[in-house]
Design a protein around this nucleic acid. Structure first.
Lengths: 237, 237
DNA sequence: ACAAAAGTGTTGATAATACACCCATGT
DNA sequence: ACATGGGTGTATTATCAACACTTTTGT
């Protein structure tokens, strides 16, 4: 195949072999010591009344990551939340109206960053991960792989610290890990591990108005973390 | 938005917001104690003379995984080689002839499974990973992330054993890990680790015609591995 | 005898686990 | 005083890293 043939056939393929392409966002939220997911009501047969991930078709001029950001912003008005691509799904029968390939993204935020109760007419709602409704399309599968990715990332990246108040207790942090990982963690061992990372700054303040011994508040040392990453150091919790 | 509006707008989007979609396959090969990559010569300006990953547009009726299998088969005649999806790339300027999104897959095989020297007119060729030519498109980036994935998988999945003869020595196995991971491994510690997994079967045979003490040959215990996986057991090397 | 790779054990450091009691506060 | 969660230490075990010599074969 010579050069001009290649250009012709490629150009033809780009014209003809096209697929509809969407991004679907799995938005995890942490609040009230529970892990939640943001879903939107589906109004497409045969999934009417079911719930689905936040998604949209990508525009002609935007990168995939940008599309994911746009989708999240459209539904929540939230900006600059980091989204990570997890996988791309293109099974033949996955969409009722034709061939649609989707790239799945996930992110993690505080539930109270987005209050579904005060949102406009969009049918978006937080669901407890434990009490999920039936999902449309193959979104159950997508959710499962994003959840698995989230659990891996929580252990190796500092994505948990942003889900708590800026100053937090070690028990709050441990509870967060327990909820997201779905396991129990030994109190003493967890404290030792976290302290050994040296990424927590012990503040001078303590909890107030609690009916027990007040806990010391810690904050996360972003600067040190960035520095350690740039030196190629990683942690594992 | 009511139901029929949803159907109409979705149908319209599927018609209009389409992108050309390809799969690109990063085929790693192990042979002569080196890690290699299978590349094809690119004949599309401005990348003429550069080399690229094995790719093609997906057909209207095939799953993504199937497209990856088809591409590999087209270039090598090889079938039923496991391919894993790594990521999807859709930056705006990544293809000279327009918007093309690609899903990247990788797999790993013996170099001698596919002899590029006896292939037909296709310009496909094994390259040492150490001696790569300049790659077309964003294939350098794609290759890098697939390589990183390969290294992770090698440590947690038995993808290395299929690259050696059915019966192999522990030194051959260690060399393979050293080459793919790009690090040196302590001989004694490696032997201990591998033996502790209990996934190797010590055969009655030894190396022949070597000018040194002949090594015992081992084979991989697929059945036990499958059983352990089904019980949720994992290994790490 | 020599070269060349196979094979083998120990030690010390570090990390993971399991586990129980006292402490500070509000009511 | 009591209920509540905060905070601490130790012993055991498992894992990892570092390291050097003897063995078996072909030449």
């Amino acid at each position: 195949m010579n050069e001009s043939t290649a250009i012709r056939t490629t150009r033809a393929a780009i014209q003809e072999l096209r697929v509809a392409f969407t991004v679907d966002c799995v938005i995890f939220g942490y609040g009230e010591e529970k892990l939640k997911i943001l879903l939107v009501e589906c109004n497409l047969p045969p999934y009417i009344g079911k719930w689905s991930l936040l998604g949209d078709f990508i525009r002609n001029d935007e990168d995939l990551d940008h599309a994911a950001d746009r989708v999240l912003k459209h539904y929540t008005r939230l900006d600059s939340i980091h989204m990570e691509q997890v996988g791309t799904y293109g099974a033949k029968g996955r969409h009722p109206l034709g061939r649609v390939v989707t790239a799945a993204y996930y992110s993690l935020m505080k539930v109270k960053n987005f209050e579904d109760t005060v949102s406009d007419s969009l049918q978006v709602k937080w669901f407890d991960l434990e009490l999920l409704p039936e999902l449309a399309f193959d979104h159950g599968v997508i959710l499962a792989s994003c959840y698995s990715r989230l659990q891996k990332r929580l252990r190796s990246r500092p994505i948990g610290f942003g889900l708590l108040p800026q100053k937090f207790t070690l028990s709050q942090l441990r509870k967060l890990y327990e909820v997201v990982l779905g396991i129990e963690l030994d109190k003493r061992n967890f404290r030792r591990k976290l302290k050994s990372l040296n990424l927590l700054i012990k503040t001078e303040t303590v909890q107030a108005d609690v009916a027990h011994r007040p806990a010391v508040l810690y904050s996360f040392n972003h600067d040190l973390y960035e520095q350690q990453m740039s030196e190629g150091l990683h942690f594992e919790i």
